Amino acid sequence: MKEVCIVEFPSNLGLKESEPGKEPGVNRLPDWLWKHNLHTFINPKNIKRLDAPKYSNKIDPETKILNANALVDYSREQAYLINNLLSQNKFPFVLGGDCSILLGTAIALKQKGNYGLFYLDGHTDFMDVSLSETGGAGGLAASLATGKGPEKLSNILGLQPYIKEENLWCAGNREYDDEYENEIRNSSATYVSLRDLRKKGIRNAANLFLNEVEEKNLDGFWLHIDVDVLNDQIMPCVDSRTPDGLTYDEFNELNSYLFKSPKLVGLEITILDPDLDPTGQYTKEFVNNLSTVFKKYYNNTVL
């Protein structure tokens, strides 16, 4: 059974300023989750932290992406850390940060073998940079990880693609816009919108993914959880709010199937902004739900 190691990547490099002159607060998420007892509930054997480079709100002229050079440097350092943990047969429980933290992990996965990615998010994060209104890599994370977009970010260490496009499952999007959705519809990734997830049934959708992992004989899969996949009423403290979203019953059911799979090699939590939850009420509920389901279903116990 794998030891759980909490890994803190307190980065906001992939987001635009929350308001002029103010950095996004999501880089304080690991400390915020600590304050609300996630670390205590998960009870990891180790906690590792890698601080991010200095934030800038300037667009890189070459890639049209915010903080592009800093992201390259940070992703390489992240990959080294995650690679070491995977080599030691440990389970990285990663706390972001914004969704761009995926890049470092995806690089490490490519270095280790052929992995799947279950991208649970209220957005696809799969689009060309030309469609981005902000230039934030967080909104491009899934496409960059699968080899799309500027090579500076999609081909770090010459490892493009980090995740094969056909091994990406993007689930939970509710940004219903044809131009946006067609990017992933026209790819070889599997796209399951929030509507489709409910239509298929959560158990069926999870089993389809897990069966595919087995049939392709993948080395494993990584779980990306952007908290904005949750219903806006129970998780409003995110940078891009959208009506609807998963209830905790739906979220917990889906995670229960993924957590108990022996093919799950690690996970990451992104986007919850402490600045938008001053009393901690939404964070506390999230921590309680996530940690309870993880402890119950991950290898039946947490080390």
Score class of each variant (00 low, 15 high):
Ile6Ala: 01
Glu8Arg: 11
Phe9Ser: 07
Pro10His: 06
Ser11Tyr: 01
Ser11Trp: 01
Lys16Tyr: 13
Ser18Thr: 11
Lys22Arg: 14
Pro24Ile: 10
Leu29Gly: 06
Leu29Asn: 08
Leu33Phe: 15
Leu33Ile: 12
Lys35Cys: 11
Leu38Gln: 07
Thr40Asn: 07
Asn46Asp: 15
Lys54Trp: 10
Tyr55Gln: 04
Asn57Glu: 14
Ile59Gly: 08
Asp60Ser: 07
Glu62Gln: 13
Thr63Leu: 05
Lys64Val: 03
Ile65Met: 03
Asn69Lys: 15
Val72Phe: 09
Asp73Thr: 14
Ser75Cys: 07
Ala79Cys: 08
Leu81Pro: 03
Ser87Glu: 15
Gln88Ser: 13
Leu95Arg: 10
Leu95Phe: 13
Asp98Arg: 03
Leu103Ile: 15
Ala108Val: 13
Gln111Ala: 15
Leu117Val: 12
Tyr119Trp: 15
His123Asn: 11
Thr124Asn: 00
Asp125Ser: 06
Val129Leu: 00
Leu131Gly: 00
Thr134Ser: 14
Thr134Ile: 02
Gly135Ser: 02
Gly136Trp: 05
Gly138Leu: 04
Gly139Pro: 03
Leu140Met: 02
Ala141Gln: 02
Ser143Asp: 06
Thr146Trp: 06
Pro150Leu: 08
Pro150Met: 08
Asn155His: 07
Tyr162Leu: 04
Lys164Asp: 07
Glu165Val: 01
Glu166Tyr: 04
Trp169Tyr: 07
Gly172Lys: 03
Tyr176Phe: 10
Asp178Ser: 09
Asp178Pro: 01
Asp178Arg: 00
Glu181Asp: 04
Glu181Leu: 09
Glu183Leu: 00
Asn186His: 03
Ser188Thr: 12
Ala189Asn: 02
Thr190Trp: 02
Leu197Lys: 03
Arg198Pro: 01
Phe209Trp: 06
Glu212Asp: 15
Val213Phe: 04
Val213His: 02
Val213Ile: 15
Lys216Ser: 01
Leu218Arg: 04
Gly220Trp: 09
Phe221Glu: 05
Trp222His: 05
Val227Asn: 01
Val229Lys: 01
Val229Phe: 04
Gln233Gly: 09
Met235Arg: 05
Met235Lys: 05
Asp239Pro: 01
Asp239Trp: 06
Ser240Ala: 13
Asp249Trp: 09
Asn252His: 10
Asn252Val: 13
Glu253Asp: 08
Tyr257Pro: 01
Leu258Met: 14
Phe259Trp: 12
Lys260Met: 04
Ser261Gln: 10
Leu267Phe: 08
Thr270Ser: 11
Ile271Gly: 04
Asp273Leu: 08
Gly280Thr: 10
Gln281Ser: 14
Gln281Ile: 14
Gln281Gly: 04
Tyr282Thr: 09
Glu285Pro: 01
Val287Ile: 13
Asn288Lys: 15
Lys296Leu: 13
Thr301Arg: 15
Val302Trp: 07
